[in-house]
Structures are given as C-alpha cells and as structure tokens.
Design a protein around this nucleic acid. Sequence first.
DNA 1: TATTGACTTGGAGTGCACTCCAAGCAAGCC
DNA 2: GGCTTGCTTGGAGTGCACTCCAAGTCAATA
Lengths: 150, 150
Amino acid sequence: MTVLESAPVKVRTCAGRVTHPRPTGQDRYTISEVAAHTGLSAHTLRWYERIGLMPHVDRTHTGQRRFSNRDLDWLELVGKLRLTGMPVADMVRYAELVREGEHTFSEREALLTAHRENVRERIAELQDTLHVLDFKIEIYAGARRSAERA
Amino acid sequence: MTVLESAPVKVRTCAGRVTHPRPTGQDRYTISEVAAHTGLSAHTLRWYERIGLMPHVDRTHTGQRRFSNRDLDWLELVGKLRLTGMPVADMVRYAELVREGEHTFSEREALLTAHRENVRERIAELQDTLHVLDFKIEIYAGARRSAERA
DNA sequence: TATTGACTTGGAGTGCACTCCAAGCAAGCC
DNA sequence: GGCTTGCTTGGAGTGCACTCCAAGTCAATA
C-alpha cells in the first residue's frame, strides 16, 4: 500500500461481485493495488502485459510497474470482453489495432461488431436454457409440494 | 450410416447453429449418428460415458454402443447446461443424482435453482457488456461517417 | 547492519475439457 | 481371402488461460 492511503473499502456491484473503488486523484498505482481493484491477480496482470494485452505499463526508476488511470480504463474494457468469453488472442488483436492508431478504426469497428453479434447469440442461448431450467425446476418443485401435502 | 437411412438433412436452429434432425421411429443410434445429431465428437461421447456423464449406453452383442432416444434427450439437456458454462463436474454430480432415484429430487432442484441464478447473472453481465460495445461501435461508426462526408 | 516485504524476470506447472493415438475386433463387399 | 469401414479400449497429448516458482533487486524499518 504505497499510493492508496485510504482503507480498502469493498464495493458490491449489481451483479454481486466484490471490487475495490478506484482512488480519486491518483494516477500511479502499484500492481497489488490494481490487483485489488480489478480482481485480477498480479500474476495475470504481468502476463497480460507480456502477451501484449496491456499497452506497456510505465515503470519507476527501479523497474516497478506504475499503472495509470488510462490503464485501469483499458483493464475495465478487457474485463468486460473477457466476461463475454472473447478469446485472449482476439483481445490481443484488438489491443494491437489500438496501438497502431486511428487508421485501424474500421477494423476495430468490424471486430467489435462481430463480437456483439456473438454476445447477442449467447444471450439468446442462455435465455433458451433458462426456460428449460424453469421447466425442470417446476417438475421437482411440484413433486416436493405434493409430497408435503401428503 | 447403418440405422439412419434418410439423407442427413441439415437443420438451422434459431440461434444459427446447424444440427441434424433426429430420425423418427428409431431407438438405436450408432455413435457416429449421435455425433452428427448432437455436434459432439464420437471421442467426446465416449469420454462422457467414461466419466459418468452418460447413464451407461446399451451395447450390441459385439460391444458397439447403441444410443436410445432417452440418451439423446439426456444429451440435449447436457448440451444446454454446457452452453451455460456449467462445469462438467457439476453435470456429473447431477447425473449421479438422477441415477440414485427419486429421493434426490430436492437436491436436484437445489442444484438447478443455483445454476439458474448463475445463468441470470451471466445474462445481466452480457447485457451490460452489450451497452459498452454499442457505445464503442458508435464512436468508430461516427468517425467513419464523418470521414465519408469529408 | 540485518531483515522484511513488495516487487522484478523467464520459464515451468496446473486444471479443465476435450482430442487423439495405437492396437485390435467385427461386418460387408469384391 | 483380402480390403475397407466403423467401431472398441486405456492412456497419452493438446490448447487455453492462467498460476506458480526460484532467484534476484530495492526501499523501508528494527
């Protein structure tokens, strides 16, 4: 805890996951602060950088990583894409396009549009399964109710 | 192709996946027919049985598997649970409960109810990501439109 | 000065869900 | 009989996404 001075208050998101708030007015976070904030392990953060999924994190004069708010923004997007099951290789490709500059806008748009279609299909599949689960659960619940009545 | 005599007509589901129709009036399918029908490989079907995710498939006198319509029903459910990311170990647990008989109804209900909650959370996460994707795509599309106007 | 603790690296290890392999058997066809 | 095709088995291999390890550096504290 070198930069983040306040106590690490935990926050519960609407989806039930626990996360740490981003300290305001700071722009240089240690790897363990970022790990606490994002829920990713320090190992994973180093690995993301090694494979090119992070846009090269700034260092102190002794070589320690100092993540910026921009890095946290990027990790937030990566986290969302990861939750939707986008393969790491595709996210690395997107990161490359971002590094290459504005002339890759249309390719980025195509990549995200294809992924959006993917996500929509996944939602439809999940909702389909939800009906099956409702049906099965109702059978078991019905059996339980008639057992309780007996 | 020993049992399924009709040509393997392909069917497109609402989610866009391609599958094979279940031949009517049959109740003994070879492993390759089941593979074609479910989209799983024959390897995976054997593996499912080995780890206890299939309720022991019937055999011919020479030891070849012959899947029943009941087996196909089971594989359909397994497929749905798999699509929702349920770990294989959990599915095996559910299969064990089914084999144990009706006294496991309440445990099965609890297992499926917990999973349903899980699926609902996943849908919410995906929809959240969808908004982020819409936002990003709109930025790229906007840039493209103003470039085209220029 | 010595120790503690957080950090660094490249490379090796882990867990999951398949996926494949080698060797062999049975049936159908020329 | 010989060939092909489809199936059988246990066990080994694969790809993904981490996850951990050993050996070392540096800054702060006892």
